[in-house]
């Protein structure tokens, strides 16, 4: 039995805090559990809530190398797992033409020397601790998902010519998804599921305080409150954490100490990316609370 990386949930939490990632009970608990159960974590949630950052921060926390596989439509085995280095193989054949028997050449050609490692294989074969991040896994087609299954459940890669390569050490694996499509049952079943939503106000305020240098407590509080109010509106795209941070940074640059309706309205374009959302927000900043109730379409 290998040793566990973490002793307890609070340890994970404190460790993440040290690398400036403010987790909550759920996040820390699941990272801890992933280590104990040796299971990958499937992280889902709205854009800009720190899904990718979580993997990076965990890697930083345990001092591991981060290996990243960015998914996209059309990703295949050769890009994700391994590839034979055809050119080198060709050279090998040409270089010693006639001297070797065919058997020797064949054995030689499909050896380690001619294997190009791609991220998944790299993570499996690494001897030092690594964290494997499979980013935006929902972008690959359903069929391609199958590539991942073997590595996710057994931490091994089968190469027909070489046999099965098993992991030297079990890497921590994170998969992120923006939920543009339903992932297959087979994939979900192999993972622990973590949904990272927008943080609650207290946590968001803390995030602002850690990530924006020199911001006053008062301003951070105001920013967090306004963002919370905005998220309650029905918007096309709610402000994400990264947008909140951008906004806080902007306010700092502008030397704002107190956010009023005017400042909020004039800088709303940093938080919101759709004109209709901005218009709605500006209207909300200025209007009374009662005005907003009228928009909720009720039964006729």
């Amino acid at each position: 039995m290998t040793e566990y990386r973490f002793e307890s949930v609070p340890e994970v939490r404190d460790g993440l805090r040290k690398v400036d990632y403010l987790s909550d009970e759920g996040i820390a608990g699941i990272v801890y559990l992933a280590d104990r159960l040796k299971k990958p974590i499937l992280v889902e949630g709205p854009a800009g809530t720190g899904k990718t950052q979580l993997a990076k921060s965990v890697a930083e926390m345990i001092g591991a190398r981060l290996i990243r596989l960015q998914c996209y439509e059309g990703l295949d085995e050769a890009k994700a797992l391994y590839e034979w280095n055809y050119k080198k193989q060709l050279l090998r054949i040409q270089a010693q033409r006639g001297n070797d028997s065919w058997d020797e050449v064949e054995e030689d050609l499909f050896s380690d020397e001619f294997l190009l490692e791609r991220p998944l294989l790299e993570a499996i074969r690494a001897t030092e601790p690594v964290v494997l991040l499979i980013d935006e896994v929902d972008r690959v087609e359903v069929e391609t998902e199958a590539l991942l299954l073997e590595i996710l459940s057994d931490y091994q890669v089968s190469i027909p010519e070489l046999g099965t390569i098993e992991a030297k050490q079990i890497p921590l694996v994170f998969l992120t998804s923006n939920n543009t499509r339903e992932l297959s049952e087979a994939l979900k079943r192999r993972c622990l599921f973590l949904h990272i939503d927008y943080p609650d106000m207290e946590r968001e305020k803390e995030i602002i305080l850690t990530k924006v240098p020199d911001i006053t407590e008062n301003l951070a509080d105001q920013v967090a409150r306004i963002v919370r109010s905005l998220r309650q509106l029905e918007l096309k795209k709610s402000p994400s954490v990264s947008e909140t941070l951008d906004w806080a940074n902007t306010l700092m640059l502008l030397g704002v100490e107190q956010v009023d309706a005017e400042v909020a309205s004039s800088t709303a374009n940093i938080l919101l990316k759709y004109q209709s959302d901005i218009a709605k927000a500006v209207r909300e900043f200025a209007a009374d609370k009662q005005g907003m109730k009228a928009f909720a379409p009720g039964p006729k």
Binding site: R225, S229, D260, K289
Partner: peptide, 9 residues
């Protein structure tokens, strides 16, 4: 108004 709104929230 903004403050009031935030307090109420």
């Amino acid at each position: 108004k903004l403050e009031e709104r935030l307090e109420q929230d």
